[in-house]
Design a protein around this nucleic acid. Sequence first.
DNA 1: CTCTAAGTATACCAATCTGTATATTTTTTA
DNA 2: TAAAAAATATACAGATTGGTATACTTAGAG
Lengths: 195, 195
Amino acid sequence: MDREVGVAQSSKREQLIQAALELFSLTGYSTVGVNAISEKAGVTKKTLYHHFKSKEELILAVLRYYDERSRNSFMRSVEEKAENSQERLLAVFDVVEEWFNSKNFSGCLFVSAMGEYPEEGASIRSVCQESKLMTQKYIQSLAENAGLQDARELSEQLMLLIEGSITMAQVNNSSLSAVRAKKAAKVLIQSSVSP
Amino acid sequence: MDREVGVAQSSKREQLIQAALELFSLTGYSTVGVNAISEKAGVTKKTLYHHFKSKEELILAVLRYYDERSRNSFMRSVEEKAENSQERLLAVFDVVEEWFNSKNFSGCLFVSAMGEYPEEGASIRSVCQESKLMTQKYIQSLAENAGLQDARELSEQLMLLIEGSITMAQVNNSSLSAVRAKKAAKVLIQSSVSP
DNA sequence: CTCTAAGTATACCAATCTGTATATTTTTTA
DNA sequence: TAAAAAATATACAGATTGGTATACTTAGAG
């Protein structure tokens, strides 16, 4: 009955998600058709609709898949880059810079999704909110472990710098914004250590 | 020959741009058809294609129109809110907050456009770049007039806070990010006045 | 070995999309 | 007032969209 056991847990399903992810990153959501997605995945359209009951459901699956994978690799990279929490708080911006320089970068997938499907009060928006929230919580935990004052507020402000640098990197096709954000972050952190 | 003289400089053309602007703000670009636009403008599709030779040209016209109008009203609001340049540098964030609270707010139109038409190396991307650049220059001029050190770098960092707050306001449907950005901005400005 | 779920292949549907054609009417301007 | 430009009304073209239907094949599990 349930074939999703063992090692190859989700062959076709994951192929579809990955294919869709690539296409959505390149040209957005509504401009990419289900035909193109199934074709790229090397799978029939019928199979696509066997795994996802609509295009919107596929989009949601893509966002959740991307969210989990990207944040995991983000945190791993941060922890590889620095030993203690204080340094990691700044290493965040180095990882962000690397992301900007990677060839797949084309802005934030969640923000793009919300721009194209703004009314989705329930699903798409909430996935996006959740993703940003978990990133903020992670940064907050770094700030707390570093013994900084008002870790919550500081982490929210650092989020603003991160999100701003994402936008500017996309607009100007440059990773310079990450360097600038790091410089600003240093100032904010410094003012948080000395009240 | 050229009917665009006198007071009513562009009746139908402007109707089209305004109608398209409203629709694009609500549901993005590719999901809105030219039929819906011309209908909302109270104009024939033929008339639309008389003024704009393609949908993409209409999008560009909308972005340019919006860019000019929004930045003008932005600067006017800032200058109404505060007398001197130092105060205006912070008043920027109050104006941003008001924008977030306005009912038309749905994120940055330029960023959304770039998300949906990423390849447009020439036109759409450059309009967006230009818009952000002029905003940054304006903030830089405020910083210079306030006699702050390293006005260029400071203005770029403040831009990050602004753009980040736009994203977070869109995501969380809240204007709180503007308040947070203002607090962070105070710290950055302070550290720029005392080297 | 048989049953069933998952897959392919292919064709189709109705709706919508951008953009155009034709013929007529309104408005502007010279 | 007459020529020219801009608008309307309406229909259509060709492509593409999300999603479905039918018939057949493969493969895994009990």
